[in-house]
Design a protein around this nucleic acid. Structure first.
Length: 272
DNA sequence: AACAAGAGCAACCGCCACCTT
DNA sequence: AAAGGTGGCGGTTGCTCTTGT
């Protein structure tokens, strides 16, 4: 059975709102509130609009203290930082920017900020190659603790993301969420860890059998002669890395302070 | 001046979670 | 427990304005 529409589509006006409609809606809500029922509201005030449309118009345009106009550098940084850590959770991002709506931020990201970041990244010099460790390689059989380096056929460029500038823009407290960003998705990464001096990178990938594997390497200015190591999680983290069909549910956001240990400075994984 | 392409943004659509009955 | 109603959200669309040719 199909879902009943929230309103009579045939008798509902669509498209841009007129100043009269705005005035009606604004005046009513300011005097009476929404009454807790957006669907019934348009009939009450004689608007031929869908209740959802009224809600959207109020939240995104009419409600007091809405901030219109260009975004500041600080707002840019907050949006970028949160996008990297939580993805396109626009309502959560909007909650960190008083006066901005999720729609505004979403539009801003899609039309400008994304391009701005890409342009910034293109300006970066050719980065040094990232050493990769193939976790399936037989590195443990070697007497040396230095594993064999494997150059992937098509090495993903971590420099597709400007982590340095993103991390430098972090506020005092850091929100941690598991969702990967666009880059992670493209490369199959589930999460990334970068330590304090930005020289070491740890990436979690999910292999075909849905086992999570860890690759660790060096990043940035560290000399390419440094080795990488295959890492396995400690036993207390097994539940995080051994799942059979679907990723674990996202934990609530965590906070850590700037003086937290380097190991805690990571994206996407909850510290245990 | 006219047209095309691109950018910006308001609004819509459809899905999902939660609540109520 | 199941079904229906509503709010909330993210993705997408399409209109308008600006810029380039």
């Amino acid at each position: 059975m199909g879902r009943a529409p929230c309103c009579d589509k045939a008798n509902v006006k669509k498209g841009p709102w007129s100043p009269e409609e705005d005035a009606k809606l604004k005046s009513y809500i300011e005097q009476h509130g929404t009454g807790g029922n957006w669907i019934a509201l348009p009939q009450k005030i004689g608007l031929k609009r869908c209740g959802k449309s009224c809600r959207l118009r109020w939240l995104n345009y009419l409600r007091p203290n809405i901030k219109h106009g260009s975004f500041s550098e600080e707002e840019d940084n907050i949006i970028c930082t949160l996008y990297v850590s939580i993805g396109s959770r626009w309502s959560i991002i909007a909650a960190q920017l008083p006066g901005r709506t999720d729609n505004d931020i979403k539009n801003y990201w899609n039309t400008r900020l994304k391009k701005k970041l890409l342009a910034k990244q293109r300006k970066l010099d050719q980065p040094p190659p990232i050493p990769y460790c193939n976790s399936s390689s037989n590195s443990s059989s070697s007497s040396s603790s230095v594993p064999q380096l494997v150059v992937p056929p098509a090495p993903p460029s971590i420099h597709d993301y400007d982590f340095t500038s993103l991390i430098s823009s972090f506020p005092q407290q850091h929100h941690l969420y598991p969702p990967p960003n666009m880059y992670h998705h493209q490369q199959g990464f589930e999460s990334l860890l970068i330590d304090d001096d930005l020289s070491h990178l740890m990436a979690c990938v999910v292999s075909n059998n849905q086992q999570m594997e860890v690759q660790q390497g060096f990043y940035g200015s560290t000399t390419s002669t440094e080795s990488t190591t295959t890492t396995s999680w400690g036993p207390d983290m097994t539940s995080l890395v051994n799942y059979s069909s679907s990723p674990p549910p996202p934990p609530p956001p965590l906070l850590y302070q700037d003086d937290a240990s380097p190991a805690s400075r990571y994206f996407g994984m909850q510290m245990l």
